[in-house]
């Protein structure tokens, strides 16, 4: 039998430090069988090709928070771009080659006085083009329920304790409208170029559950 073996890290963690979810070597589940069946039927009927499925996954793997970080770093270094980004996030990201499709991307700016947080209370809507697939916690009942009613408490669980004078704004995404947080540029980064700045921008800082790294 052909067997799709990948390199296994025997400490149970992937290169990105996350545990592997039971995968190709675990007992075949009902839903995995359904995935194989649906895919094969779609291929047999000429609706999709194996190459299209593979290309879709390659594109998915290529979308990571590095995309969003590049946008943020550009906004930090180019005031005209930042204005365009805040005016129309979708168009400004397209300038950089990140096509969010028909979605409206709304970019919300963190300042000394305002901290923004994004959530999708109804489902799992997320700016995938810029951040990749949403993390598990973003899709949990706890995050979806509480982010809109006790954001400061939720942020403290993420290690972010905001002073009372900072206004917290929570943005609830929809199927057609996605948000991205433009974090505030950290102090002490004056001499840094765009690439070095992008390395400071974390995924969570663009969701609002974190802040950029300090230089």
């Amino acid at each position: 039998m052909p067997h799709d073996h990948h390199d296994h890290h025997h400490d149970g963690l992937s290169a990105s430090g996350h545990p592997f979810r039971s995968d190709n070597d675990e007992a075949l589940t009902y839903w995995q069988r359904m995935e194989i069946a649906a895919r094969e039927l779609l291929i047999e009927k000429g609706i999709v090709t194996p190459a299209e499925v593979a290309a879709q996954i390659d594109a998915m793997d290529a979308r990571s928070p590095a995309n969003g970080a590049a946008v943020v770093a550009r906004a930090w270094t180019d005031p005209a771009f930042k204005d365009r980004l805040l005016a129309n996030g979708s168009d400004a990201c397209r300038e950089m080659g990140f096509d969010v499709g028909a979605l409206h991307l709304v970019v919300v700016e963190n300042t000394e006085a305002v901290h923004n947080l994004i959530v999708c209370t109804l489902c799992s809507c997320y700016p995938r083009t810029l951040l990749g697939l949403p993390p598990d916690w973003y899709k949990t009942r706890a995050y979806r329920s509480r982010a809109v009613i006790e954001p400061r408490k939720v942020l403290r669980e993420f290690g972010l304790d905001l002073p009372d004078h900072v206004t917290v704004r929570v943005h609830d995404s929809t199927a057609d409208m996605r948000y991205l947080v433009l974090p505030a540029r950290p102090a002490g980064t004056d001499g840094m170029d765009e690439a070095a700045l992008a390395a400071l921008v974390t995924r969570d800082s663009m969701i609002g559950t974190g802040l950029p790294r300090q230089p």
Binding site: D4, S14, S16, H18, P19, F20, R21, S22, D23, N24, Q32, E35, I36, A38, R39, L42, V48, V53, Q56, I57, M60, D61, V119, T121, L122, L133, P135, D136, W137, T140, R141, A142, Y143, R144, S145, R146, A147, V148, I149, V154, E157, F158, D172
Partner: peptide, 27 residues
């Protein structure tokens, strides 16, 4: 429609998506 309801702490664990999960997304 969960927004604003009571719930416990946010579980912070994450996993890398398995091939079959990515294929579902791709389909």
């Amino acid at each position: 429609d969960m927004g604003g309801r009571d719930a416990g702490p946010v579980p912070q664990d994450e996993h890398d998506f398995a091939l079959w999960e990515k294929r579902v997304d791709a389909l």
